[in-house]
């Protein structure tokens, strides 16, 4: 009996130390900006909506971050706020947005010796016109930081830092969309 308990306790400790799964859980606010007088469509691929970041490098603890639903929610909020009208399909939209996650990186307090969980997200965002022709194609990097507070779990820290990074992407996208050179040129060209 003692042997079974030892094995169970050891097993649980090893499992807890070696792998973890965190679901990024948040509701994104609708940005408070003036809408572009055009119709927009957000093309979220199934891979994007179901994306999980899986950390399996040998020198770091295994970690899975379920990011798909959260990043989809963020881009939906942004798209709703950017355009005066939401189009039902890419063919009926003035502009179609096609986001793709380029990279997800994180740093834990125990790795850096700092008091923060940190997350970097890099997205590639393509904007296409009605005919599917590219209007713009650019990379956006977001950064999020969460204070490592006492008794806070790793999951809570990673979640908070990732949400901050997503919000940072949303901030840059909403405030910078019309200022992006190719988008600006296209808006001017179409008298929008």
């Amino acid at each position: 009996m003692v042997l079974v308990r030892s094995i169970l306790v050891s097993g649980l400790l090893i499992l807890a130390g070696c792998s973890s799964t965190h679901t990024i859980d948040t509701d994104f606010p609708i940005p408070l900006i003036e809408r572009i007088p055009a119709s927009g469509y957000l093309n979220l691929t199934p891979e994007f909506q179901q994306y999980n970041f899986i950390q399996d490098e040998e020198d770091r603890s295994d970690m899975t971050v379920i990011l798909g639903p959260a990043q989809s929610s963020m881009f939906s909020s942004i798209s709703d706020a950017l355009f005066a009208e939401a189009a039902a399909s890419a063919k009926s939209a003035d502009i179609t947005l096609l986001p793709d996650l380029d990279s997800y990186q994180y740093a834990l307090p125990k790795e850096t010796g700092s008091d923060f969980f940190e997350v970097w997200l890099k997205y590639r965002l393509q904007a296409l016109d009605k005919d599917g022709q590219p209007i713009a194609d650019w990379l956006i990097t977001g950064y999020g930081r969460a204070t490592d507070e006492r008794l806070q779990t790793q999951g809570a820290g990673v979640n908070e830092a990732t949400v901050e990074a997503l919000r940072d992407i949303g901030t840059q996208l909403t405030l910078g969309f019309s200022q992006q050179a190719d988008i600006r040129a296209w808006l001017d060209q179409n008298s929008i």
Partner: peptide, 12 residues
């Protein structure tokens, strides 16, 4: 902060 997003974020 949510009601005024993105004007009271760390970078704004």
């Amino acid at each position: 902060v949510d009601a005024l997003y993105p004007w009271f974020e760390p970078r704004t």
